[in-house]
Every structure is written in structure tokens, then in C-alpha cells.
């Protein structure tokens, strides 16, 4: 089995780490870098709890090998805010009932971040479509949709 030194920027910080070829990006983030905000959920590409951004675009880190992130920039939920200074999406999720148990939340935040970066004022239908790769078993989704709408308004002063 081959091993590879990957050069990857995670939340703005450069890392050079040796990984076996079969290390999943989700496991690399959680077990090698100890960034446990990214959740392992179904591990079959269905639930989206492991969603992260690669070069600003949302992907599922359980469907990526760590070696695929070589030379690229990864953003996890830890990179959204800075300490207690939360990202508007995070405060909106708190204020609008966007979470209950919270397990799916990091994935939803990253998918919502990708959506709002391309479409600053999405319609409700566009929000639901943009979050269609993520599952939540608690909220029934309405709180999440409201949170994203609220964050969009905050971020773009509507």
C-alpha cells in the first residue's frame, strides 16, 4: 500500500502530512488533525454530515480520499467562525431553531455556506435544493431553511 505526503491547507493553516492511500478525507480531518467538528454519519455518501469545502465548494469528506485534497484548500466547520465570534450562519441556526441534536449541523452549515457564496439571496426552493445532499432527523428542515434565509438577510442586508 502506497503512502503519500499531502500538502493541504485546512482552515487557512498549511499541513504536510503522510497518509496511506486509503485514508478518507473525513478520517484525516478527524483522526490526524483532530478537527472533530466534521462528523462521520452514514459513511455511504447519503447523509452529508461530513460535508466540508474543498476550494470553496461543498463535498462529502467520506467520499473523498485524503490524497485527493493534495494541493488544495479545505474548510471545515472550525474554519467558519473564529472562537466565540460566530459566522452569521451559525448565529442564525442558533436563533431560528436550525438544530436540535446538532449532529448534522456542521454539514448543513458547510452546504449552506457553498449555496450563499454562489447565490446570496436564494428562494426557499433554492435553499431546499442547495441542502438536498444533507439529512436531518430532528428538525423537519423548516428551522434549517429559516436559518439559511435569515443568515442570507443578515449577510446581505436585505
Amino acid at each position: 500500500m502506497s503512502k503519500h505526503v499531502i500538502n493541504v491547507t485546512v482552515n487557512g493553516e498549511a499541513h504536510a502530512v503522510e497518509v496511506p492511500a486509503k485514508r478518507l478525507l473525513a478520517d484525516f480531518l478527524r483522526d490526524d488533525l483532530l478537527l472533530t467538528g466534521t462528523k462521520r454519519g452514514c459513511e455511504t455518501g447519503t447523509c452529508g454530515a461530513c460535508s466540508v469545502l474543498i476550494d470553496g465548494e461543498v463535498v462529502k469528506s467520506c467520499l473523498n480520499l485524503a490524497v485527493q485534497a493534495d494541493g488544495r484548500s479545505v474548510t471545515t466547520v472550525e474554519g467558519l467562525g473564529q472562537g466565540t465570534n460566530l459566522h452569521p450562519l451559525q448565529t442564525s441556526f442558533m436563533e431560528q431553531g436550525g438544530l436540535q441534536c446538532g449532529y448534522c449541523t456542521p454539514g448543513f452549515l458547510m452546504a449552506a455556506h457553498d449555496l450563499l457564496s454562489r447565490n446570496p439571496s436564494p428562494s426557499e426552493e433554492e435553499i431546499r435544493e442547495g441542502l438536498s445532499g444533507n439529512l436531518c432527523r430532528c428538525t423537519g428542515y423548516q428551522g434549517i431553511v429559516d436559518s439559511v434565509k435569515n443568515a442570507a438577510e443578515k449577510m446581505h442586508g436585505r
Binding site: G45, G48, V59, N64, L115
Partner: peptide
């Protein structure tokens, strides 16, 4: 097709 994450990859 599929979902945003899969379409991005």
C-alpha cells in the same frame, strides 16, 4: 442530478 456535493466532485 444526485446532490450538490456529488455534483461538485
Amino acid at each position: 442530478m444526485a446532490n450538490p456535493q456529488v455534483r461538485n466532485q
